[in-house]
Every structure is written in C-alpha cells, then in structure tokens.
Nucleic acid binder design. Structure first.
Lengths: 168, 168
DNA sequence: TTTTATTTTCATTTTTTTTTGAAAGTTTAA
DNA sequence: TTAAACTTTCAAAAAAAAATGAAAATAAAA
C-alpha cells in the first residue's frame, strides 16, 4: 500500500473509532491527520486535506487543544497559526484518560454518592435492589477511579511492561 | 432522597453516561431501569416507565440482549415476555468489555496491521512519522487487547482486590 | 491610523441518529 | 379455522448533532 492511501485509511478508521466512543468523527480525523504529520499544519491545510469548512476546522482544533492533544505554534515572521499534535501514544492515552475521568467519571461518582444516601424500607425488594445496584456500581467506579489515578501517575512502561507480567 | 426520585436520577445519569460513551441514551436508560428492578419487566411496563414507544422499546431490548446484558423470561401461564437484567456489576463490566473488544478493538487492530505494511521512502519525514505513529498505536492496541483478555478470564477480585495492591 | 491577513463566532442548513406508530407477522387459545 | 394477544418491522417524522459560511472580531503591518 502507498503512503497516500494508507494515510486516508488511517484517518477514516480513526474517525470511525472516535465516533463509536462518543467523539466527534471530524475531531478524531483532524487528530489523526495531525498525528501522522511531521510538521505543524495550518487551518487552511487541514480544511483542504479533510474537506471541511473553516468554522468546523477552527472549533475542532479548539476542542483538541482543550483535550491537551494539540498545541498552537507560531512560526517567526509568519502571521498564521500552526497546529501540532503530540505523537507519543502513551501521553495521548493518558491525556484522554485524564479528560474523560474529569468530564465523566468524577461527575457520575458524585451522583452515585448522593444516590447511596437514599432512604427507604429495607424489606421492600425495589429498595433493596436499588441500594445494592448503586452500591456495587459505586464501588466499581471507585476502583476504576483509583486505577486511572495510578495510570496517570505511571510511566509508559507501566502498561507496556511490568504489569502485563503479573497477568501471565 | 426518596426511592422514586433516586430511581429517576439514576436512570437519567446512566443514560447520560451511556451517550457520552457512544451508547444510545435510551438503551442505557432501559438497562438502568432493569438493573434496579428486582423483577423482570414487560415491554409495556418499560414503555410506560420511560415514556418510549413500543417500537423503540422492542429494538432497544433486542440490542441489550445482543450485548448479553438482558435476557427474556417467560412466566408459566402468561403469554407475554418479561425482561430481566444481569445485576452483578463485574459480569456487566466484562460483557461490555467483551462486546466492545469484538466490535471495535479487533477491527481497528486488523486495519492497523494492514497499515503497518505501507511501503515508502525511509528518508521521507511524512513516511517515517506515519510508520512510527501506526506502529506505536498498534503496539498500544495490542496491549489493550492482552489486558482485556486477562480481564475477561479473571475473577471479580482481580479488579477489586489484588491488582490494586501492585500499584500501591 | 487604516489596511490587510487571519481567526472566531454563531444563525442557519445539512446530515445523522433516534423515535414513532401503524401495519404485518407470529404465536397461542378458543 | 378464526380470533385475540402479543411482537416485530420499517418507512416516515422528529430530534439531536455536526457543519457551513459569511459577518464580526482581532491582530499585525503599512
């Protein structure tokens, strides 16, 4: 396979994967494009490569910056902005985990904590089932949380190396 | 907080979480409702509790069955079908992991493997960056895959117990 | 300053996803 | 059989999400 074809396939696949995980397809595609680009790109170049509008490119890039996956660069003597993506997959994975933890896990844990406080009749099966489910989900969420904290503190080889041996 | 209110809050929160992770909000809500229901429910009951149409309820329940999270039950002497959800959160987590692995991880690994075969000029930065990125993502995906396999074989206390101590 | 290059915003349009509901299909019982 | 009870399907409608593009805003240069 030629580079040009492979690049398009990767961008498409990354976009699809993103959309399956609740991430805007275009955002995932812009990320894919920047990940495989050795140099920082301008908004114009991104628009052309992916056939998207200026507005879309602008908003998507802002989101990617918010996620900590892309940074703005300025070239001396040049007026326009360039965008460059982090390329270390371990750092990328950690950033995504960190953001999703902050945006989704923390809020749901807060709600689950409140729901644990529900009052009712211990002999009512509806009450008992509710309480057990919430308590169990809360415990699982707490463990996911702890595991993510460990992951966020860990070095790259935490995942690529030692931990896997424990499973073997 | 009263049970009725807590139930609604949980259903809402679970639906929101689902939609953030690419799972249809209604499907997550039906799942939530069944998880906190001690007894199996009829389509009719689910329609009423969540104010959804018969068609929607039917398709959503079928999907949940496909995911292995819900099962049909028949009560003797009764004609209509009842739906019951698995309540063990560890089993739920494993089923979801198993399905997403099959539906999303395996296909992307297949594509990444193909993309690793790309041919080009080793001195071309575009080629080098592409190859490095794909190779790294592929390695990470492979490790995620291995970890999930381990998780799928593991007992509940793999997650709730021992492994966490390794991190401490 | 004023002009020009560039970025950002956001009301509107387009696309995608989800839901509806009524007709068709199926199963059991009379 | 026929009818009643219940389930499934799917074209059409509605809702939600994403994208457009032109105007407004901003920033650098003349």
């Amino acid at each position: 396979m030629e580079l040009a074809e492979a690049r398009l396939k990767f961008i498409e696949a990354w976009g699809k994967l993103g959309s399956e995980w609740g991430i805007n397809r275009t955002m995932a595609q812009v990320h894919a494009l920047l990940m495989i680009s050795p140099e920082a790109l301008t908004t114009e170049e991104i628009m052309n490569e992916l056939s998207i509008s200026r507005g879309n490119a602008n908003m998507t890039l802002r989101d990617l910056i918010d996620w900590g996956l892309v940074e703005k660069q300025h070239k001396t003597g040049e007026r326009k902005e360039y965008f460059y993506a982090e390329k270390d997959v371990w750092i990328i994975a950690r950033r995504v985990a960190e953001e999703r933890k902050k945006r989704e896990l923390t809020p749901i844990i807060k709600i689950l904590d409140q729901l644990t406080e529900v009052k009712g009749d211990e002999n009512d099966p509806a009450f008992k089932t509710f309480k057990t489910s919430i308590t169990d989900i809360n415990k699982l969420a707490g463990n996911v949380n702890k595991t993510l904290d460990t992951m966020l503190k860990a070095e790259e080889n935490w995942f690529f190396g030692s931990i896997l041996k424990v499973f073997k």
